[in-house]
Amino acid sequence: MTTPSQICDTGCGLNATLRIISGKWKPLILFFLRDGPKRYGELKRLTQGVSDKVLIQQLKDLEADRVLARTDYKEVPPRVDYSLTPLGRSLADAIVPLCTWGTENAAEMASIFAERDALS
Rank of each mutant, 00 (worst) to 15 (best):
R34V: 00
A64S: 11
E63Y: 00
L87Y: 09
Q6T: 10
P86I: 05
K38L: 07
L87F: 07
R34I: 04
M109S: 12
V80E: 07
V96D: 06
P27H: 02
R34S: 12
F31C: 05
R19K: 13
I7P: 00
S90Y: 10
L55F: 04
V80G: 02
S51Y: 03
I56A: 09
G23Q: 01
V76Q: 12
R116G: 04
A69F: 09
I21Q: 04
K53C: 07
V96W: 06
S83M: 06
T103D: 12
P27Q: 02
L28I: 01
V67S: 06
I95E: 04
G102I: 03
A92S: 10
C12G: 14
V54H: 09
L33F: 03
D35P: 00
T71W: 06
A69R: 14
L59G: 02
I112E: 13
T17N: 04
C99A: 13
S22Y: 06
R45I: 05
F32P: 02
D81T: 11
R39S: 08
S83W: 02
E42K: 08
D93C: 06
T2S: 09
A94G: 11
G102W: 06
V50P: 01
K38Q: 08
D81H: 15
Q6H: 09
A94K: 10
A94Q: 11
A118D: 07
L18G: 03
R70K: 15
T47L: 13
T71C: 12
T103I: 14
D52R: 10
L91H: 05
V96G: 01
K60M: 06
S5M: 12
T17H: 05
C99T: 10
C12E: 15
I20M: 05
T10A: 14
L84K: 01
Q57I: 04
L46C: 02
A92P: 02
V50N: 02
R19E: 13
F32D: 08
D52S: 08
K74R: 15
R79A: 12
F32R: 09
K74A: 15
K24N: 11
D61L: 12
L55H: 04
L30S: 00
V50F: 01
V50G: 00
A94N: 10
T85V: 06
D72W: 09
L62E: 01
R89Q: 14
R79K: 15
D93M: 08
P27G: 01
T3F: 13
D61P: 02
K24A: 13
L18N: 12
G41C: 07
T47M: 06
D81R: 07
L119N: 10
Y82E: 05
L30D: 00
K38V: 00
A92N: 04
G41N: 14
I7F: 10
N15P: 00
S120H: 10
